[in-house]
Design a protein around this nucleic acid. Sequence first.
DNA 1: AATACCCTCAACCGCATGCTT
DNA 2: CAAGCATGCGGTTGAGGGTAT
Length: 368
Amino acid sequence: MGRAPRGDEQGVKKGPWTAEEDKKLVEYIEKHGHGNWRSLPTSAGLNRCGKSCRLRWTNYLRPDIKRGKFSEDEERLIIHLHSILGNKWSAIASRLSGRTDNEIKNYWNTHLRKKLLRMGIDPVTHQRRTDLDLLTISFSNLLAAALNLGNLTTPLDITALGLRADAANFARLQILQNLTINSTAAATTPTLGAMNSTILGSSSLHSSQFSDLLGLNREIEGLVNGALGLHEDQIVSNLGFSCSNISNILSSLEYCGVTHIAEQEKMPNMINTSCMDSGTVNGNINGGNSNMPVFTSSCSIPTMHSTPPFVSASPDQDSATKFQVQEPMIDSNASTPCEAWEVPNVLAELDIDLGWKHVLEQISLHAN
DNA sequence: AATACCCTCAACCGCATGCTT
DNA sequence: CAAGCATGCGGTTGAGGGTAT
């Protein structure tokens, strides 16, 4: 164990390097090698400490440094190595030619960490995130946001909902209900234009609210993806709709200068009795509150391939389309689309999709 | 156009490690 | 063996650029 580090050298420059300093450092090292870093600054005529020179050289000026974006292979390798080595950035860097530990560390913290979170993977343990408490918090927040938007008035103990994905869809459903509650322009077919018309009718929406919801939605996706044990290229993602399309919708809203007509009565509660049961299923999950609509076991969620065809292409959506899908379990004889959602316990099934198509169809139907 | 906010990443800081004296 | 020294490492910071309001 060495002694404690000295105090900072007196009067040495700190902060960003200038081109002239870089030139001096490169020329000196090319000619003499770096040798003793402590004495290098004096020899090279630099008013820097040796440590600063070493960092500048190893992280930026070294000729063998590879610059530019990380490739997908590099990303995969970093994630793999991190799962084995943890935050041993120098060890990871030694296995990626041309990349520095600092660069990898930064890339991890700014990109890969978030990417894993979106996939429902804990970036520390590299295990799937299945923390129901977190999920509960997310749902609670989501529902609180829905409450703020509109007409949900009954508190919900989401913990009691054993079916997480059902709960996720319920939350989304409720939000969409509120999005469309004021709609006067609805279409019979769920085209993007129709949805634009529907959602644009809302007088109570602000982009900041959308932003909040999208953030929460992302959280939920990560957690649900983790809970379902999906692989990276099987990510169930609604971002294709929720981000890009809502962004588009918001843009359209700006562009069209839509006028709002508040006519709440025109939009019946879309969570109707064909799809919901008042607290009779799942062990009286809402504590016997008869006002609280609850998903029943026969009213599960749409399947993967029911993702709306009008969803615009996005990386996330591309990921979703890679998902190996099964045949839809849609009952063509069902009297309502809602009744056709005959999917058993969603957590027991990987054929789970948090897509929005049926929700959107319901909106269109009820808006008519 | 101005301001606020967010994100990225180069650079810094403090501590650990290993070699030398 | 202990102190001194050089270097490595990982966490953190903050300037600057981009985007949103």
